[in-house]
C-alpha cells in the first residue's frame, strides 16, 4: 500500500503538486487522471525519489520514502515504468531484463523464463537490440523489466502512449490481471481516461497539481462534471 499525505512539489515558482493526499491499496489499481501539466508524472517521480517534495510524506506500508535515494526505493520493491518506457536502446532485450533483475534477490533464469512466458514476443527477440523494437514491444519490455524484480508496487506512466487502440486494450487487461494475481499495488497515470477507468479500482483526478476528485473508478467515470471539465472525454 502506498500512502501519500499532504504532498507539495515546487519547481521554482511553479507549483507542480499542491497538498496531494491519497491511498493506493494493495491489490488494486489506482488511476491518476488529468490533463497535460496536471502533475501526474511529477507525482510518480516524487514517489520514486527522482523529485524531492517541499512538504508531505509518502509511505510504502510503514516505510517513509521521502528523502530516500531512488535506487533504494527501487530496491524496496517499487517498480517504475517511466514515460516513454525508458528501455535502453543500446542494450539487448535480455540485457534490459537482466538489469531489471540485478538489484533484487530473484533467480535470474527463472525470472527470464517467467517473463518470456508472459510476453512470448520478448523471448523471440531476446538477443535483439532494443532500438529495433516496436512501440508495443518496448512497452512490454518495460513492464517485464519492472516485473522481473517481483515488485510490490508498480508505477506506470502513460503506458498507452503511442499504442494502437487494440494494443492498449490488451495491455490494460494484462495490467488488471497482473494486479489481481500478484496482489500488486498499481498506480496508473493515464491521459487516456477511458481505458484506464475501465480497469481501475479507484481513480484520482489532478488539476494544476491539486486533487479535484478521488473515489471509485465507476463513480468518477459516472461524474458528468469531472468528465466534461477535467478529463475532456466521453466515457461510455
Amino acid at each position: 500500500m502506498i500512502r501519500v499525505e499532504g504532498l507539495s512539489v515546487n519547481f521554482g515558482a511553479v507549483k507542480a503538486l499542491r497538498n496531494v493526499s491519497f491511498e493506493a491499496p494493495t491489490g488494486q489499481i489506482t488511476a491518476v487522471l488529468g490533463a497535460n501539466g496536471a502533475g501526474k508524472t511529477t507525482l510518480l517521480r516524487t514517489i520514486s525519489g527522482l523529485v524531492s517534495p517541499q512538504s508531505g510524506t509518502i509511505h510504502l506500508d510503514d516505510v517513509a520514502l521521502v528523502g530516500m535515494a531512488t535506487e533504494n526505493i527501487a530496491r524496496l520493491g517499487v517498480g517504475h515504468v517511466p514515460e516513454g518506457r525508458g528501455v535502453i536502446e543500446e542494450l539487448t532485450v535480455e540485457q534490459n531484463l537482466r538489469l531489471g533483475a540485478l538489484s533484487s534477490k530473484v533467480n535470474l533464469n527463472e525470472g527470464l523464463e517467467e517473463q518470456y512466458a508472459r510476453f512470448p514476443v520478448l523471448g523471440e527477440r531476446r538477443r535483439k537490440y532494443c532500438a529495433t523494437l516496436s512501440g508495443g514491444e518496448r512497452q512490454m519490455l518495460a513492464m517485464a523489466r519492472a516485473l522481473i524484480a517481483k515488485p510490490r508496487v508498480l508505477l506506470l506512466d502513460e503506458p498507452s502512449l503511442g499504442l494502437a487502440p487494440q494494443v492498449t486494450s490488451q495491455l490494460m487487461k494484462a495490467i488488471r490481471k497482473l494486479c489481481e494475481t500478484q496482489s500488486l499495488t498499481v498506480i496508473l497515470v493515464e491521459q487516456n481516461a477511458k481505458s484506464a477507468l475501465r480497469i481501475a479500482h479507484q481513480a484520482l483526478v489532478l488539476h494544476l497539481g491539486s486533487v479535484v476528485a478521488i473515489g471509485d473508478a465507476s463513480s468518477v467515470a459516472d461524474d458528468e462534471d469531472l468528465r466534461r471539465y477535467y478529463l475532456g472525454v466521453v466515457v461510455t
Binding site: I88, L99, S103, A149
Partner: peptide, 17 residues
C-alpha cells in the same frame, strides 16, 4: 552491465535499483 546502463541511461538505471 550496470556500468554500461549507468552511462547510457542514468535515470532509468536508478529506477531499476
Amino acid at each position: 552491465l550496470q556500468l554500461r546502463a549507468s552511462a547510457l541511461a542514468p535515470e532509468v538505471s536508478r529506477l531499476l535499483g
